[in-house]
């Protein structure tokens, strides 16, 4: 068997692929955070809860309305996005004028509230959500057995990441969004409805979280705590990538997923701290993050 650094190549390739799959979740989640922070300057601590909400909406649609995975993949993000829009309109928009800390504390409280509500009704063990039949089974790649669903996760999340980046960096709507955060008064003077744009942005970020949630549902248990399990890592991703940098969030998501995968082969005990070690080092060397512009 061929070896690299004393590790069988097969094991290495397998773990790297697993890292890529995890990285897909990190990228899609940190992307939503980066959109919300980059355009609204809100540190959205409720992101994990919204991710959980996406998974639960999928589960509830299936359990009570018989709506399967594919329609849910569209419907669940819409519902979570709508929920986000209501939140922004009725509550968050009142905090824009205050210090960032207030929206951080508000969304943190919100996250605890949403999680607590679901825990009250569903306990903590999680609900089963089956892999859609069309993606069941897997493919033997020679070095590992790749479940088809996980391959789909990589593709879907990559497509969403690229799509979002394109929407914000390369379209007219995106340029309005960016302009509205630079100088809202001026953009408003041009006849653009800025408050509506902000609501749309927050709802879009929430919908991204909801989408990742339904994407994750067949892999992880649909459980009230699934959001808080992952959100800390996702925040680390955003910090390493550079707060607010959309490309940075995507690239760092995949990079840290791969780093985690590698660590699991070389020194498994460190796999759950490696992300934070990287974060600490990056903050020391480049306080604005790998892809951040300002310090």
């Amino acid at each position: 068997m061929t070896m690299i650094f004393g590790i069988p190549v097969q094991a290495l390739l397998g773990q790297l692929l697993v890292g890529l799959i995890n990285g897909s979740f990190y990228a899609a989640l940190s992307l939503g955070l980066a959109v919300i922070f980059g355009l609204l300057r809100i540190i959205n601590f409720a992101h994990g809860a919204l991710y959980m909400l996406g998974a639960f909406v999928g589960y509830l649609l299936l359990a009570f309305a018989g709506i399967g995975y594919w329609p849910a993949l569209i419907v669940a993000p819409l519902i979570v996005g709508l929920f986000g829009a209501v939140l922004e309109r009725t509550m968050l928009s009142r905090l824009y004028k205050l210090d960032h800390l207030y929206s951080l504390l508000f969304t943190f409280g919100l996250a605890l509230f949403i999680e607590g509500t679901f825990r009250y009704f569903y306990g903590s063990s999680g609900q089963p959500y089956a892999v859609p039949p069309s993606l069941a089974g897997g493919t033997n790649l020679g070095f590992m057995f790749l479940p088809n669903y996980r391959a789909w996760v990589v593709v879907a999340s990559f497509a969403v990441c690229i799509g979002t980046w394109f929407l914000i960096e390369r379209t007219k709507l995106g340029s309005y969004l960016r302009a509205a955060t630079e100088n809202p008064t001026l953009v408003q003077a041009f006849g653009v409805n800025v408050p509506l744009l902000l609501t749309f942005t927050y709802a879009f970020g929430c919908a991204l979280a909801g989408f990742t949630g339904i994407l994750a549902a067949p892999i992880y248990q649909v459980s009230p705590v699934m959001g808080s399990n992952i959100i800390i890592i996702v925040f680390a991703v955003v910090v390493v990538g550079g707060m607010g940098s959309i490309f940075g969030a995507i690239a760092t998501g995949y990079l840290l997923g791969l780093a985690e995968g590698l660590t699991k082969v070389i020194y498994p005990e460190a796999s759950n701290i490696v992300v934070f070690v990287i974060m600490a080092v990056v903050l020391l060397v480049r306080p604005a993050g790998l892809f951040g512009k300002e310090a």
């Binding site: 097969q10 094991a11 397998g14 697993v18 799959i21 995890n22 996980r150 992880y220 399990n229 498994p268």
Partner: peptide, 20 residues
């Protein structure tokens, strides 16, 4: 044998090691 931290969300890499 392989050890994992409590409340792990992804067992892929441990399962792959077990499988091989």
């Amino acid at each position: 044998t392989v050890r994992h931290p409590r409340e792990t969300t992804d067992f892929s890499s441990y399962l792959l090691q077990a499988q091989s």
